[in-house]
Write a protein that binds this DNA or RNA. Structure first.
Lengths: 138, 138
DNA sequence: GTAAAGTCTACTAATCCCATAGACTTTAAA
DNA sequence: TTTAAAGTCTATGGGATTAGTAGACTTTAC
């Protein structure tokens, strides 16, 4: 299960990508139309800004807008920033690898072998789907 | 990421399936060879027993053994018992469905559409892999 | 009858998730 | 130049979940 953080982040991104033009949109507007707690959304948008997906404008008439184009935003990238590893087990993560403390020998772990398959399959989808793809499906 | 519970459960099951014969194995033996906290493993094995995967024998010479054969234990089933939903979002779960409180219209949710794909892919692996498959890969 | 095993209930420490509060900064426009 | 509208930042807190522990209880082989 993914956290609300990730879900909300993806929804906010699609909201921004779906609009005509790229004018700043206020957090409150996104929060209201997507039914997201505004304060929580603030922190999510902030981390998407710090990682280069969004840009913001302060002051009156300010808000958030996409910095990258929707075709250039891979879902896998967003997922990793908001959720963390795509892998189901740390010893199989490409970007957040950690050794499992209970496994003396990784290569001998049958669970690991299975989890590699699951990861590769999830990755095949998430890394090849862009924000634009999400919108086009509608 | 899956919980240790699920990982430990799968490891314990493979441990049991890998042995010659089907004599009871003490919890302490499994715990020690798989580096799992014994008390924690007790509760995991208990829930696998209550759901029909394992059987136990009390008293001297007792322990746990497989009730189903390894070819008849699908990883997806074990996963659902120990971890819960395979889907990444409740509104897409086949066995643990819940409506998302923030979505007025499920069919209009682009995130949902993506998550259905991810679920189907994960399911294709987990539902078609058995405990026996895990062992055979070694 | 006793020691070896699983069973059950209860508890706890740590962590994470989701959210809220509020002071602060920047900016557009009157 | 003031003011209101916006994002920024820090701090906090309740609740749920996770991983594990303690200990009393039950069953069974010998």
């Amino acid at each position: 299960m993914i956290s609300r953080k990730t879900k909300y982040g993806l929804k906010a991104l699609t909201f921004l990508a779906r609009r005509e033009g790229n004018d700043p949109v206020q957090i409150s507007v996104i929060a209201e139309s997507e039914n997201i707690s505004q304060k929580f959304l603030e922190s999510i948008l902030l981390s998407l800004r710090k990682t280069g997906f969004l840009q913001s404008k302060k002051g009156k008439g300010g808000g958030y807008y996409l910095l990258k184009s929707a075709e250039n935003i891979k879902i896998a990238e967003v997922y990793r920033i908001l959720e963390g590893p795509i892998a189901l087990v740390p010893c199989v993560s490409l970007n957040f690898y950690e050794k499992c403390d209970d496994c003396p020998d990784e290569d001998a772990c049958t669970v690991r072998k299975l989890m590699i398959k699951v990861r590769d399959n999830a990755l095949a989808i998430l890394a090849n789907t862009t924000l634009q793809d999400l919108i086009d499906e509608e």
